[in-house]
Design a binder for these strands. Structure first.
Lengths: 203, 203
DNA sequence: GCGTTAGTGGAGTGCGCGCTCCAATAATGA
DNA sequence: TCATTATTGGAGCGCGCACTCCACTAACGC
């Protein structure tokens, strides 16, 4: 028996290909990102590529799963805090910061373009679910603490926070004048106003 | 001299293909929407398709241009009104209503996936410009009338209205629980709060 | 050393696609 | 009616792509 799989080696190579794939997908879109281009970017042959990923779609799925895992991981960082509204704004700010990597908005667009593939749709749904499971409990705690409006359900508020985050990402990708650094604070302020609702005017 | 081009016939056929293209692009994305599928949907042969559009991309551009023209047309409808904030909210509400056609969000996603094509990027930029030229003057009038916050430039406020609209569209496309009918009013209310800013709390 | 197997590159393949081409038809003016 | 030309369908072509195959090397246990 010789040459057993070294998980470290294997994972490192996978990540190298994922990184190259993220770059190429972001700048050329799904159909523009040929496997040949990804291999060139990663400095490998096509044989190596398909040794690690059965199909091009599998690479996209792997990137999405890494993103979802990252979301879940970040969620744990806020465990134990007692300011629910603060947590929500921090989470939203963190997502905004993610958009600072210029590849993220491009990749999101590329993935949106192939959402008709069932596997991709499922992965995005899983990602969306992870986001909700992260947000909703904090929204509920915020409502219980009187920090967050109660005229909307927690799920609906979470959806609207996702709306702000998605719109922000899209805007950064589209509008050169719209930068993460310049608009991040306004995002948080707008989200805060939304979380509070119009109570400020009626109380 | 015989058989001169009949502009009415010509335009009607073009619109028929545009309509079929919108349907197929929305449900299958750009790469999934083969010209053969579009022809089948439209009930025509491929020869006819390429008689009206030189390339598949040209069809996408034609759809985008129709959308931009529609935006400009709608802008004219508000000419003469004296309630700038009301106009802005009506415009935003109108965009939300557009999302009620289930093909629109799907098409937007499909187009986002091929934004790396220079021609598509240019068309989207033109569309964005049309939106701005529609919004910015009303924002400025609203600021002059004291209806709209003045701590942000008119251009920035317009960008944020576009952010809300884009996020709304994406959310409708993604989340089955997020419907136009159910969320339209909240969109307008959120936009109103944003336009006013936090003056309500400080005045 | 030797045997074994993971890892690697790259030539090659098959297929699905956008698009071309052309014969046939329909609609007009004369 | 005839001549002319826009319009139409569909057979098929060429190309670029995802993916296969295989020869080869590198790394490990013994």
């Amino acid at each position: 028996m010789a040459r057993p799989v070294d998980p470290r080696r294997h994972e490192a190579r996978r990540l190298q290909i994922v990184d190259a794939g993220l770059t190429v997908l972001a700048e050329r879109g799904y159909e523009g990102a040929t496997t040949a281009a990804i291999c060139r970017e990663a400095g490998i042959g096509s044989g190596t590529f398909f040794h690690y990923f059965a199909t091009k779609t599998d690479l996209v799925l792997a990137i999405l799963e890494l993103g979802t895992a990252d979301t879940v991981e970040k969620a744990a960082a806020h465990e134990g805090r007692t300011d629910p509204a603060g947590v929500l704004l921090d989470v939203l700010g963190g997502w905004a910061d993610d958009a600072a990597d210029p590849r993220i908005p491009g990749f999101v667009r590329a993935v949106a373009g192939v959402m008709h593939l069932p596997a991709v749709a499922a992965a995005l749904e899983a990602d969306d679910l992870a986001q909700r499971e992260l947000l909703v409990p904090w929204v509920e705690r915020g409502q219980a603490a009187g920090e967050v409006r109660t005229d909307l359900s927690a799920a609906r508020i979470a959806a609207w926070l996702a709306l702000l985050s998605g719109g922000f990402l899209e805007r950064v990708a589209t509008d050169p004048a719209f930068t993460v650094d310049g608009e991040r604070d306004l995002l948080v302020a707008t989200a805060r106003a939304f979380l509070v609702g119009d109570r400020a005017a009626t109380e």
